[in-house]
Amino acid sequence: MSPSTLLVIPAYSESGRVGDVVRAVQENAPGVDVLVVDDGSPDSTAAEARAAGARVLRHPFNMGYGTALHSGYCAAMRGGYDRVLQMDADGQHDPKMLRHLVAELDRGTDIALGSRYIGRQAPRSSLARRVGTRFFSWIASGWIGARITDPTSGFQGLSRRALESVVNDGFPEDYPDADVLVQHHLRGLVVREIPVLMHERIGGLSMHRGARIAYYGYKMLLTLLLMPIRRPTPLRSADTVARTSA
């Protein structure tokens, strides 16, 4: 029996795009269950995703990209899935590439990370973002001991072991990037990058924009700096979210 797979698509205000993304996934990755996590969108994101055939998890209000992903992971744990794939709802990630992530997981990798910077022409991005990506790639690569070119990539595949590792109270609420990859590595999980094709955004707003980039840099630096001496959180609430009481 092939392993059960859940594809998590965090979405915020992606009406007009999310339906096409879900349909494209169903065409290109049959047999994969699709879960769209609507992070409190004020528009018809949830309805469009549901109409396209996806299961939809609706946050009552906006809680951030990281929390949306975390809810998806919790749903995967509750559903007893063997592996999780994740991609963005804005049309940047090509669903044809999902099979490459799956193939990498089949090879025993715990975290297959889709990189737009390996061997392909990356889509245009701002200078601040390019500098930030280069800097945190350098830190993540140094820590992990393997070359990581795209630590901000939201196009990933996770094994069951990796899933159990990310369902914790310390999972970042806003930008789960280099810090999560380093945490995976410290827990003995295998992180590998594979080249994927990424498109320009079809519309909507990137979460890495304006003053948020400065906050992102600060937050990521602080998290990476404190990582070796940070205590595990005393809050044990994720257990109640990710595990069914039955």
Binding site: L57, R58, P60, T67, D169, S237, A238
Partner: peptide
């Protein structure tokens, strides 16, 4: 910080249960 975390947990759990009921 603590309240934000608790609020997040509650909202996530509510969303998951709602989705399960719908399903």
């Amino acid at each position: 910080s603590r309240l934000t975390h608790r609020q997040r947990t509650l909202a996530q759990r509510m969303a998951l249960l709602e989705e399960e009921v719908t399903e």
